[in-house]
Design a protein around this nucleic acid. Structure first.
Lengths: 121, 121
DNA sequence: GCAATAATTCGATAATTCTGGAATCATTGA
DNA sequence: TCAATGATTCCAGAATTATCGAATTATTGC
């Protein structure tokens, strides 16, 4: 993930309504949630919701799959992790990261699961 | 960090220019970088830069400290980690997280360093 | 005090975003 | 085919954002 993509993903999540939608789907898990379910849970106008969902999809945070009349939405965990990874990577490569404030960036490495960080403190 | 704060932080970082500024400061480390340094590195108009910096500060991602005529900016690592933590927490509490796609949210737990996740695969 | 330097604030414009009602499309079931 | 349901697209208005030149503030050194 490059800077542009990361910025776009964060802009997509940088709106309370969209972040609530995304969180709703993250909590819903892999089975996802129908648009109507999100609409009822968050009480947003259908067209507004549709716009927000489209935006989240455009930047890869969400996926939709049709199930008859309903559209099932699922959060894209990989995209979320890529974003978290981007935020952490520059930080982690530095001494600053080993200090107490940067705990987050520990083992972000889908392709290398061997770097399990020592517990701090 | 609640949803509103997380959304604001992400909106602040959800702009290529601001994200570049923030990254520049993350890379600069705890010693930070002067506004003029950022300006030269990223080649932005001073007034534009000032607005972006103000925005990042307003949402707690940055801090400024005066050193004579220059203002030294530093990234707030704690804020960044709080954001990463927010993104990960809902995901991590679920089974989905133990699957291969959610590696990021491993040991985000400044107050509990005992939950070191088993390497996946 | 005054010139020089660093950075912000003011003011203004173009572009984008957010919102939601109305219309439309897609699918189901009778 | 037709009504009903789920969701999107069209359209428009209000609000916010991004940008930057010009003016202003803050600080230093002479």
């Amino acid at each position: 993930m490059d800077l542009i993509n990361a910025a776009q993903a964060m802009e997509a999540l940088g709106n309370p309504t969209r972040l609530a939608i995304f969180r709703h789907l993250v909590v819903a898990g892999r089975s996802g949630a129908p648009v109507s379910g999100i609409q009822q849970a968050l009480d947003i106008a259908p067209s507004t919701l549709s716009h927000h969902i489209a935006r989240l999809m455009r930047h890869g945070l969400l996926r939709q799959e049709r199930r008859g009349r309903t559209l099932l939405c699922t959060a894209d965990y990989a995209a979320m992790n890529a974003l978290v990874g981007f935020l952490s990577q520059e930080c982690c490569a530095r001494d600053e990261c080993n200090s107490d404030s940067c705990v987050a960036a520990s083992d972000i490495a889908p392709d290398d699961a061997t770097n399990v960080k020592d517990p701090v403190r």
